[in-house]
Design a protein around this nucleic acid. Sequence first.
DNA 1: ATGATGTCCTGGGCGC
DNA 2: TGCGCCCAGGACATCA
Length: 276
Amino acid sequence: MPELPEVETAMRGIERVLRGKSLSSVEIIRHDLRFAIPNNMIALLTGKTCIELKRRGKYIILIFTDNVVAILHLGMSGRIRIYDPTQSFERKTHDHFILTLNDQSRIVYHDPRRFGMFYLSRSPQWDEEKPFSTMGPEPLENWHGANLFKALRKKKSPIKTVLLDQDVVSGLGNIYVCEALFCAKISPLRMAHDLSKKECGVLVECSQNVLIKAIEAGGSTLRDYQKTDGSLGYFQYQFSVYDKEDEPCPGKKCRGTIKRIVQAGRSTFYCPICQK
DNA sequence: ATGATGTCCTGGGCGC
DNA sequence: TGCGCCCAGGACATCA
């Protein structure tokens, strides 16, 4: 469930039970995610109290006492399940770690493909490291047409591909880029540096609208058993183009048909008629 | 340096 | 029913 709206939804779910609580145990079932979960994770987290949670791009930042920071990325198939103290817990296949809180709540990380990451950093300098030091703006906070325009000038690739670059803007992924480009009526094939300042402004606004609506819907639930923390996201029912190959364009007067192409190895869905 | 491609991993869906 | 193939929300390493 890993684009900004889904990560935001997951973060809020974790925040509801974890903020201000301490960890009574940390159980790691499998270390071998995208990168191995560090061996000192258990020692450093057990007994610590969570002070604050943040989301940056597609990462969830868990800030604990003693300047301990844990960073979680859900990869392609990572999910969080939360059990309140009264709920009975059953472990499922592909559950990789379990955080148990002092009030007996449980936070379970589940990830069939194991592309996720769970690693340690330190407060307050966690954002000076690896992905965060070069990461682009938060699309819902300090992103504007003017700074997108500036970022695109040096990019010699199609706009679709460039928007997936987390150093250009953080948090967008394959679904929401397709949806944003459709909203902006911009072809995914356009070279990024050819977009006008005005088009950049529209694209920013469209991206923000799509993200806000998706967050309100609790994110998108694709394929099987997708939950965030008990509730199902339903933004997938509002997709205009993603996974809509051969369906009629939902544009008001457009009689086009949604097409699927491949760019940089990833599927792109768009309307060749109304996206110019 | 930038951009395109391959890779990690498991499961679902489809055609035969 | 079963098998093989293709596809999937991401990001990193590697190569030109």
